[in-house]
């Protein structure tokens, strides 16, 4: 490769030109295998819109609860309900505080999500469902403000969320996430050879039958219980 440096550079230029590429100005790559090409600033800006809990990635912009309510009604309420309560099986966005240790927890932005940045990021990248990336930065700030309002995390309709005050917001459930400690569970820690013979006393008793529920497809009844939602 280094034997004919000028020739290879020329070849790279010719290639770029022959492709009629808008990236003709892009520098040639200089990695170990010299594959790919250097990304332009504009390209990175177009795709790099992820937000982190520390606020890294937040764009300029601002929006109020009141603005958010209008946007929510127009773009979101058909699925998520006027108050984030969810229509049909669509996700519930508000409420559920204090239910996480109950029999049927309700995991919402207010009751479960640890970081506000995730709300901004996710709405911006993937909502509305079926028309993603259609909202501007001010719209997303306003919707995020409204979601805080629906969850009683802010109470003032005139509250304005912006890049400047964004990281001041603390989500109620932020401290309740713990690292993966599955390996320390009793059944793994035991670390003994599993029992092979006469492991349990008494005859086998059935404690639960799927047939009783009868919610398997092609089993006739497709109106199942709300348990086990995987979405």
């Amino acid at each position: 490769m280094s034997k004919f440096p000028k020739a290879s550079l020329l070849a790279a230029c010719l290639l770029a030109m022959s492709a009629g590429s808008v990236h003709a100005e892009a520098a040639s790559p200089s990695g170990p295998l010299k594959l790919g090409r250097i990304a332009t600033e504009a390209e990175i800006a177009a795709w790099d819109h992820d937000i982190r809990p520390d606020g890294k990635g937040l764009p300029e912009g601002r929006g109020t609860v009141a603005d958010g309510e209008v946007l929510f009604t127009d773009n979101c309420a058909a699925c998520h309900g006027d108050f984030g309560e969810g229509v049909g099986r669509w996700p519930v966005l508000a409420g559920g505080e204090g239910t996480l240790d109950r029999e049927r927890p309700e995991k919402t932005i207010g009751s479960y999500w640890p970081y506000l940045s995730t709300v901004y990021d996710y709405v911006n990248r993937a909502m509305p469902f079926g028309n993603a990336r259609s909202l501007g930065p001010d719209d997303v700030y306003a919707l995020t403000a409204y979601l805080l309002y629906l969850n009683d995390i802010v109470t003032d309709e005139d509250f304005e969320l912006s890049r400047e005050n964004f990281t001041d917001i603390r989500m109620p459930n932020v401290d309740n996430f713990v690292p993966d400690d599955r390996e320390r569970e009793k059944h793994y820690v035991a670390d003994t050879e599993p029992c092979m013979k006469d492991c349990k006393p008494g005859p086998v008793a059935i404690t639960m039958r799927a047939r009783v529920l009868d919610v398997t497809p092609e089993g006739g009844n497709e109106e199942g219980p709300a348990a086990g939602n995987v979405d």
């Binding site: 049909g88 669509w90 469902f129 398997t216 497809p217 199942g224 995987v230 979405d231």
Partner: peptide, 9 residues
């Protein structure tokens, strides 16, 4: 096969 009642869409 899918299980229609599992998800909204």
């Amino acid at each position: 096969r899918d299980v229609p009642w599992l998800t909204a869409d």
